[in-house]
Amino acid sequence: MSRRVLITGAGSGIGLTLARRFAAEGDRVALCDARADAIAKVQAEHPDFLARQADVIDEAQMDAFLSEVETEWGGVDVVCANAGTGGPAGRIEDMTYDDWKDCVAVNLFGTFLTCRWAARLMRAQGHGLIILTTSTAGLFGYPLRSPYATAKWGLVGLTKTLAGELGSAGVRVNAIAPGAVEGDRMERVLANESAASGRPIEELRQTYVKGVSLKTWVSADDLADMALFLASSAASKISGQIMAVDGHTESLVP
């Protein structure tokens, strides 16, 4: 049966891969992204998606998007709270308060707005799945990336808490913790870390592999595989879990 799937931060990268993979399963997809150009491209390539520009930390924009989805569908079966940002890189004493707030806001507060809406609908309908995108940075210390790690650790706590709040209503809540994911976003992260540390990008690239048991990066499709599993009947008793898809990270300390 076709599921109703909503994904935030899905104009590109992991989110767009999730959207395409769920759609390939025959599911209906609604997505949002803060970037107008990304949404325009998605609308042109996937006219069957309900794709809208909405910034996850703008309550008015999110209310408009989520209300449209609710009116169109009447409910929702899977919500992927995926929107995030890498934020600044550097020592904490060199960071501005605004940079810290902006990173935490997108990664953590934006997830609150999405989950608040999903929880209301799913509790009323008596079923549903919420998948948060955290990170292996939410499982380890992450030098030079303190606001990002702090926000991602917060998502771990939110996952565990919502699983407890919503379990009796038949709603499951899990998180996927990606490792180093191939793509444009990680290239920007490497550039920021290189500027902050003075180390060459290629040297930093190798540190991500060095700290992983399988000595590999992961792809957006690897993460989509996990999301589709969590949305399947095979995962019907899995809730409150942080599913690391990372080749087994041993350390994020360079």
Score class of each variant (00 low, 15 high):
residue 194 S to N: 03
residue 172 R to S: 06
residue 185 R to D: 11
residue 173 V to H: 02
residue 163 A to S: 15
residue 165 E to N: 00
residue 171 V to L: 14
residue 153 W to P: 04
residue 183 G to V: 04
residue 162 L to G: 06
residue 161 T to H: 13
residue 179 G to W: 06
residue 164 G to E: 15
residue 151 A to C: 01
residue 184 D to V: 14
residue 185 R to H: 00
residue 173 V to L: 08
residue 152 K to N: 09
residue 149 A to G: 09
residue 170 G to K: 14
residue 161 T to V: 10
residue 155 L to S: 03
residue 188 R to K: 15
residue 165 E to F: 09
residue 153 W to D: 00
residue 185 R to N: 05
residue 183 G to N: 03
residue 154 G to P: 00
residue 182 E to H: 02
residue 148 Y to W: 00
residue 180 A to K: 07
residue 148 Y to G: 01
residue 149 A to H: 01
residue 183 G to H: 03
residue 188 R to T: 07
residue 160 K to S: 10
residue 191 A to G: 08
residue 192 N to H: 05
residue 152 K to Y: 04
residue 176 I to Q: 02
residue 149 A to Y: 03
residue 176 I to T: 02
residue 151 A to M: 09
residue 193 E to S: 07
residue 187 E to Q: 15
residue 154 G to E: 11
residue 181 V to T: 11
residue 170 G to N: 15
residue 179 G to N: 08
residue 166 L to I: 14
residue 169 A to P: 04
residue 151 A to V: 09
residue 180 A to M: 09
residue 170 G to Y: 13
residue 186 M to F: 15
residue 188 R to C: 03
residue 181 V to E: 05
residue 157 G to A: 07
residue 186 M to C: 09
residue 166 L to F: 09
residue 157 G to R: 03
residue 194 S to W: 06
residue 150 T to C: 04
residue 162 L to P: 04
residue 186 M to G: 02
residue 184 D to L: 12
residue 190 L to D: 00
residue 176 I to H: 03
residue 184 D to F: 09
residue 149 A to R: 01
residue 172 R to P: 01
residue 157 G to N: 04
residue 180 A to I: 04
residue 174 N to F: 14
residue 171 V to H: 14
residue 152 K to Q: 09
residue 169 A to C: 13
residue 158 L to K: 00
residue 162 L to W: 12
residue 188 R to I: 09
residue 171 V to R: 15
residue 182 E to N: 11
residue 188 R to N: 10
residue 182 E to R: 12
residue 187 E to R: 15
residue 155 L to Y: 00
residue 165 E to D: 07
residue 163 A to G: 12
residue 173 V to I: 08
residue 150 T to P: 04
